[in-house]
Structures are given as C-alpha cells and as structure tokens.
C-alpha cells in the first residue's frame, strides 16, 4: 500500500474531526469517578495561565481536560508528564476543581493504557 501511495504522489489525509461516537470514553469515566470535580471545569483557562509548565511547553490543563472529556486520549500520558504537581492551578480555579488530584488521576488512568 505504501508503495502505491508513493506511486500516486499523495495519500489519504487523516480526518481531523473528533469522532465522538468512535472514541472510547472509559478513561474519562475512570477519572471522573476518582475525581468528580472534573465535571465542573468551565474552560476558563485560569489554571493554564498561571501554570509554570505551560509557560515553557505547550501544556495546558484546560486543554487536557477537554481532550479527556472528548475521548481524545492517545496523547494524554505525554501531556500530563509535563506537570510538576506544584499545585498553583488549584489555588486559582474558580470552580474549585481539584486540579492536582485530577492530574494524578489522569496519569494513573492513562499510563497503564499507554505504556
């Protein structure tokens, strides 16, 4: 097949669309059960604005939460590994999301799945 693609000079482009029905949602369920405040996030971005890791990498807890809730979990292990667990985000979250524990729970849920 790959040879064919080379022969054509182009390949099939992977769809960027989030396919909610095709995605698996078990990881988000596990995390929500372990840290129910996950559901309270309103995507305000206060956490990512204050996050030390976010200033030097493209890490964003707000983004991680959205990816998790849409079932886009394939890259999450790598994402949460950027967090230093400093806890600054927890100080600022207006919805009282337990952000630090959330990250721990995401790591727990995704790392076995992705290693």
């Amino acid at each position: 097949m790959e040879k064919k693609a080379r022969q054509f000079g182009y390949t099939i482009t992977r769809d960027r669309q989030i396919d909610y029905d095709a995605n698996k949602h078990d990881i988000s369920k596990i995390v929500a059960a372990a840290e129910p405040s996950l559901n309270l996030c309103i995507s305000c971005g206060t956490c990512s604005a204050t996050c030390s890791a976010a200033l030097f990498t493209d890490f964003s807890l707000r983004h991680v939460i959205l990816l998790l809730r849409r079932g886009e979990t394939s890259g999450l292990a790598k994402e949460v590994a950027k967090c230093m667990l400093c806890g600054k985000c927890q100080l600022v979250c207006p919805r009282n999301v337990s952000t630090r524990n959330l990250i721990i729970q995401i790591s727990k849920a995704v790392i076995p799945a992705q290693l």
Partner: peptide, 12 residues
Amino acid sequence: EDTLLGKPLRIK
C-alpha cells in the same frame, strides 16, 4: 466545532 479544542466534532 469544539471551539475550545479548535477541532471539528462529529457526534450523534
């Protein structure tokens, strides 16, 4: 579009 993720979304 899930505008906060910046990606189109398809959902039934």
